[in-house]
């Protein structure tokens, strides 16, 4: 099954080439419960482009992002932030091209948890292959700020992550964040052998480094 993913990725390669170079980007939102992941996801999908379908849930959303030379179709996967589901979360981010770790600037605890998420994620991804962003949300609550801008920024810089302070409530910096990610995803795809080969390389590396059998191995570890 390890080989299968490589091959499967080759098949999936058909997608980005399909509509004049449209890339499908799977982006996972991580972070404690209540930091505003879902609101952020809703913002992402509503801001610039109208989503025709009425939203029943905001756990899975899609958004098109047009850069000057390519169109990216973001598939935004929200995850359950409660601590008890922490152990099953790795299932979500296999095969993801982008991951956002979200914390709440008015909640110190969520920042600590964000660092845990980051550690967990670092076990799974290869730097340069997956775009990881640290998002300081709820910038509108700066009066009750518990995590300074500098703290977040230095953490991101240490780990080489994208950093952005946003407000899902007011929509401040949200579209900038998405554009920034889009550029980075585009860039990381350029660093490889080109657009066509990108997915294959990505996926092969992902599983070589991470879990060779994403599902079964998860089931095994958790089945104990």
């Amino acid at each position: 099954m390890a080989e299968r993913r490589g091959k499967g990725a080759g098949e999936a390669r058909s997608d980005p080439r399909g509509k004049s170079g449209m890339l499908r980007v799977k982006m996972v939102l991580l972070g404690s419960s209540g930091v505003g992941k879902s609101s952020l996801a809703l913002r992402f999908s509503k801001d610039d482009f109208k989503d025709s379908a009425p939203t029943v849930g905001c756990a899975y959303l899609t958004q098109l992002v047009c850069l000057h030379d390519a169109t990216l179709r973001f598939e935004i996967w929200d995850t359950a932030g409660q601590e008890k589901y922490h152990s099953v979360t790795p299932l979500y981010y296999r095969g993801a091209q982008a991951a956002l770790i979200v914390y709440d600037i008015s909640n110190r605890e969520s920042f600590m948890r964000a660092q845990l998420w980051l550690k967990e994620l670092e076990k799974q991804y290869v730097p340069g292959e997956t775009v990881v962003g640290l998002v300081a949300n709820k910038s509108d609550l700066s009066s009750s700020r518990q995590v300074s801008l500098q703290e977040g920024r230095s953490l991101a810089e240490n780990k080489g992550l994208l950093f952005m302070e946003t407000s899902a409530k007011s929509g401040n910096q949200v579209s900038e964040l998405l554009l920034d990610i889009a550029h980075r995803v585009k860039l990381s795809s350029r660093e490889d052998k080109g657009l066509a080969e990108w997915r294959e390389a990505d996926c092969v590396d992902m599983h070589r480094e991470g879990r060779p059998r994403p599902l079964s191995s998860c089931c095994l570890t958790i089945g104990l």
């Binding site: 091959k7 899975y60 996967w77 589901y85 296999r94």
Partner: peptide
Amino acid sequence: CNPSRLMTGEDGYYFTNLCCAVAFIEK
């Protein structure tokens, strides 16, 4: 299943959630 459908897309998302649910129930 066609692997691209499991890793991405809406079906993939819900399938992943089901796997998570089963994993959670087990532990």
